[in-house]
Design a protein around this nucleic acid. Structure first.
Lengths: 236, 236
DNA sequence: CCAAAAGTGTTGGTCGTACACCCATGC
DNA sequence: GCATGGGTGTACGACCAACACTTTTGG
């Protein structure tokens, strides 16, 4: 089976970048394409836009299809429209990124065909590595997905400093520690931050405006000193 | 005459926001729609994406159709896909903004049907005014174009501080004065800057990195002290 | 009591803001 | 010579990076 596209018209699709952070590393979900074109290549999940749904709605449908119950935070990334980006025909794609806490994603992983790929964000161009530690070349990616991923990482690097996207990746729904949040920044920006400066930065951005609140509780009895907990007062 | 769209497919179009700055004010080019739907409403120029052109190419074709020789700097803004945004059928639009120096636009104005509308960027929501000083209500705009314009102004406000889009609006191709550039910032941000601080800001952004160079020349014999000229060393 | 992890404090430099001041020209 | 518009200088506070330090736990 193989989707047949008419040759004389333009199609519109949505591609999704499911992103998560685990232990100071950024991960992306890709599946192996089973059909031509690009059979065997790693690819972002995609879906044609239906007649009676907006691109945002298509993205939600696609999320539900690929990772039901993910409840990810989504944002439009960019629209890619190169004439020859899809060998099946003329397909324009509106890419969205979907941020999902790893804690939540973990439970959904067994029931999806997609696999986690680590994104090394330190270099100019992001480097993808599969679960066996094997590097994924750009030519192993279907269509123009390498370019889409690069655009996405750049966007995240740019926006993490002045938006709340970092909070959307926090594991627990309400409580978190500064070290966790720092790990998310580190994963996205690809460089480690100074503890003290990081806390000051977060406080001035989020605590002063009431977005997060310091709690009087500590948790996570591991080895060292227990970490203070913060609460994210999410509105939306 | 009236374009007929099939009911069972999704179309993709490009809408363009031609923007310019004249005397510390931001202006947008709109035309009056002659056909249904939204006949008589003010609208952004738009065009369906052809089979063998990318959205960027469609934008270039549209530019050439509406303002031949404009040579504007273009950038993708956002993609709008609400199901009912166009009464003719299902049309998704990829919006681009096109920045054009007023000096160049002036010569092209007589041969276009589009009209200049001032955008007051001081309020939360931009306020449009036509050449007679009459305010354009949001309901006077076709389709979802009010929303598109608002998105564009917000984007420009955000990007003017850390990109070179301000330079793309400078009148002469090579030389400019600080006062001119300051006027562009004022038009876009909607608030006036301190002269001294503005110069420092521009120097640290553009002069230190070699993007602009201070010349030893002065020009513009008007009334007061003649202004120093700078040169924009554009690469692309 | 030592290592490990979390959290705090200090300091020097840079940057943004507000404001006052000086310069070159036309009339 | 004075109004006009262009350009400069300074001073203060806020903020940022780097680094050293203290606190609280487990073993």
């Amino acid at each position: 089976m193989h989707e047949l596209l008419e040759k004389d018209r333009v199609y519109a699709a949505v591609d999704l970048l499911f992103l998560t952070v685990r232990e100071r590393r950024l991960y992306l979900l890709l599946s192996r394409r089973e059909n031509e074109p690009c059979a065997g290549y790693a690819a972002l999940p995609g879906r044609m836009i239906g007649l009676s749904e907006s691109a945002e709605e298509t993205a939600a449908v696609l999320e539900n299809e690929m990772l039901p119950g993910a409840g990810a935070y989504m944002e439009q990334l960019y629209t890619f429209s190169d004439v020859h980006r899809d060998a099946r025909g003329r397909v324009i794609t509106i890419a969205y990124f979907a941020l999902i806490p790893y804690q939540r994603l973990e439970r959904l992983l067994p029931s999806t065909k997609m696999r986690l790929y680590e994104i090394d964000t330190r270099a100019e161009e992001p480097v993808l590595t599969d679960e066996e530690g094997k590097r994924l070349a750009k030519s192993d990616l279907a269509f123009d997905h390498a370019r889409i991923i690069q655009t996405c990482v750049n966007r995240l690097k740019g926006k993490i400093g002045y938006t709340d996207i970092s909070l959307r990746l926090l594991s627990d729904d309400k409580r978190f520690t500064m070290v966790e949040l720092e790990g998310i920044f580190e994963a996205v920006t690809g460089q480690e931050a100074d503890k003290s400066n990081f806390r000051r930065f977060i406080r001035s951005r989020f605590e002063d405006s009431g977005i997060i609140t310091a709690l009087r509780q500590t948790e996570k009895q591991t080895r060292g000193r227990p970490a203070l907990l913060y609460r994210w007062n999410r509105e939306a």
